[in-house]
Amino acid sequence: MKVGLSKMGIAVNNQSLFYAALLVVIALYIAWHEKLGLDKDMIIAVIRAVIQLVIVGYVLRYIIHLDQLWITLIMAMFIIFNASYNAMKRSALKSFKIPLAAIAIGTSITLSGLVLAGAIKLVPFQIIPITGMIASNAMIAVGLCFKTMDQAFKDQRQQVIEKLTLGADLKDATLPIIRLSIKTAMQPTIDGAKTVGIVSLPGMMSGLIFAGVDPVRAIKYQIMVTFMLLSTASIASFIAAYLGYREYFNARKQLKI
């Protein structure tokens, strides 16, 4: 893998990046011309993306160079914290501990499984990108789980109340909502697995092919990614749903909404 990227025909330098940035001008022109009101948002997004990626590029170079397990784990925790914070922002619950538990446990179990299976090694240049992929998928699943749960509690409020009045415990009164939330949260990952290779050539596989790796070898990594994303989405949404539903009730088992 330690073949110079320029030898593989990959030559992104500052000058080519500058020309590529002109593409943003097209997007800005459309936004301005159509009066979409997105110009400011787009400029902020582009500046943020550049700054974040430059910082992460230097940080990753430093961490990979250091090759220390504890620093790698701190970086993984940083990713998990950020993913949890973003999942919380998508939820009406405003609870940080629930997405943190869901994403941390989901990511840790999947990551441990991959390391124990020998699919990846405990080295920063493998652990950090894989943690990012797993935590990001868990974040989307947990966010979707919370969003679905919130809507379902509004739509099925009357039914939940009637089940409570029959003497149901919270779980019995909420079970259809819990199941719907987990199912909806997992659906994009399942759909993604169904169409991988025929509709999308996802990041891991594309990146390897781009870097000159034999596609037959690259798909093995993509298969591994498919497995790990399925595992993470299910664990994270399961934990998020089963911890999340209780937040809709008070200590006297009454609906708060």
Binding site: Q158, T165, G167, A168
Partner: peptide
């Protein structure tokens, strides 16, 4: 509350059937 609601049952107008 669960034991209580099993003794004191509440039925509404236009109930939702499960």
């Amino acid at each position: 509350p669960i034991e209580y609601r099993r003794e004191v049952s509440y039925c509404v107008q236009q109930p939702i059937l499960f």
